[in-house]
Design a protein around this nucleic acid. Sequence first.
DNA 1: GTGAAAGCGCTAACAC
DNA 2: GTGTTAGCGCTTTCAC
Lengths: 344, 344
Amino acid sequence: MPSNDSPASGPVTMDHVAQRAGVSLMTVSRALRAPATVAEATRERIQAAISELNYVGSAFAGQLATGRTRLIAVVLPDLRNTAFALEMQGLTEGLGSEYQLVVAGAPGAGDSDEQVFRSLLAYRPAALVIHGAGRSPGTRDYLARCGVPVVELGSLDSKPINIAVGYANRAAGKAAAEHLLATGRRVLGFVSPSKERNARAHDRWLGFRDALKAAGVAFRPELELETVLGYERGAEALVQLLQIEPKLQGVFFTGDGWAIGALLHCQRQGIAVPRQLGIMGFDDQELAGLMVPSLSSIQVPRYEMGKEAGTQLRLQLAGETRVRKRVDLGFKLVVRGSTAPARS
Amino acid sequence: MPSNDSPASGPVTMDHVAQRAGVSLMTVSRALRAPATVAEATRERIQAAISELNYVGSAFAGQLATGRTRLIAVVLPDLRNTAFALEMQGLTEGLGSEYQLVVAGAPGAGDSDEQVFRSLLAYRPAALVIHGAGRSPGTRDYLARCGVPVVELGSLDSKPINIAVGYANRAAGKAAAEHLLATGRRVLGFVSPSKERNARAHDRWLGFRDALKAAGVAFRPELELETVLGYERGAEALVQLLQIEPKLQGVFFTGDGWAIGALLHCQRQGIAVPRQLGIMGFDDQELAGLMVPSLSSIQVPRYEMGKEAGTQLRLQLAGETRVRKRVDLGFKLVVRGSTAPARS
DNA sequence: GTGAAAGCGCTAACAC
DNA sequence: GTGTTAGCGCTTTCAC
């Protein structure tokens, strides 16, 4: 009788399957990739052999032979940010099931951008998907000539390398600031990650300044803080801002996490939001609408961005010529309790 | 002069580098993997050729030839849960820089556990790291005989397949429930993901019941709810529990997200926490300590789990025999405001 | 110190 | 329908 799985005698190859099924290796290969071209009876014998031997084809061998890959390399700025999970889900669905994602976080302490790309390119991915291409022209150059299609997610403010799906960060930043101004607040703080290392943050900041300028409000560079990811960092930033300017009337946090941390800090310290201080987030995460008071934010279509990117990429990889190279999915200002007018 | 990068003329191979450097392909290969065995001058010419051509070796070809892989496959229950990010970070650091992670989310709608494993195994990973092995003996069997070392993260309640790093979920669940009981609460709800599909949730539930039994409190199966990920789901579960039992005194949520959602719901609805209702989370996420009132929780060493798993795995892959097969990293009850005694 | 052969597991093009 | 011959890009072994 059959069914003696070799538990650890080296991986089962297609040859083993062929022998067991009493056919040539080629027939097995065909049965797997073009079942219709193989006689039904043969196919069944092969299937049986495959499950008896617990055969799993080698992705390497196949991809070496064809030169094509079913891998999509994804580079994210920070794996810890849940916003990206939505994009990945959309991406997976847009791409369809034949592609597999290889995800890499942002460069660690030592690695440069290019090192990360390089180690990913070793797997000859069919495409590279990046969120936040980084600002360095060098990096963009490298990506442009790396030989694989590049999809940029999130930012539409630079000239796309190839495909870009996102929204206008500058306009979004402007909308956020305009809203704070429209509610009667003029002394405004701005909290973001490093503008130098994060192009989207930089663009949101430009938008913030656009709004101030249009409203005739003077820039207060000392009220523009940079920090790193973490709820508590938002609270800290707020403390710092209030130290610099006790008359602070509103803060635009370019991420909901910071805004939520700040909101909770206000609650603990008895700082009245929105009466005394208006707080504006960015991203409209699930928690934003649940906070007390609820958090005003800018909603960006994370899931749709991923999905659209996946769809366009799939088209391009399939050789389609009608591919949308630049897709603006827009954003939405979500007004909630944390920015209700200070005096009605 | 050199430096005419072929922008899109097919990938650069080792052969191209060899020709440019005026040596044989073999010498290039050696210069890359055993630099010491190649003459300095030759090595420099090769290095020059590599950077001029922007050569990136093919991971496939190399791994096909050697039979070894530098990939570690990781299967996570849900990519959206930030807790796993910490584990991944620890894992990366424990493994050292020579390994690359291939991450897959839990099976989607259609895919079975085995399908996910299978598609990952096609890449011949050096090892499989899974968080939450699933309860099905069939799956565990499959993993045991799949031919690669398996590392289980998070749960220590079953017999390890190979290496297991985690904490005792049952004991942790018990500790959480005991704490609620110790604060004078006897009418308790329990909220978790599907116990059938999530072994750790099942174990925490057993611990919950252990505690009730030891305290002589009757089981109330109608107060044991199952739900899915999401802050709002926690609020919904609480509403449901209060509908069933208005005299509810406490709830043990097996995830902080639900507990936070419930906490915010109480704040909106004017339900007094902890006076009227005690709320207990699990995982001690950053937000837990920042909530108002702050959330009691069970702290588990996510980062350390990943790191320890990476370290032990690296040892095993390096052929070490002194590998710790079962590492209990423990947990910690963190008592905060949300479970302060109802009556002092 | 360097090169020439063979082969990893599979697929592409042709035969039969 | 099925088998045969090459060869993907690299590493291994053994010559030189």
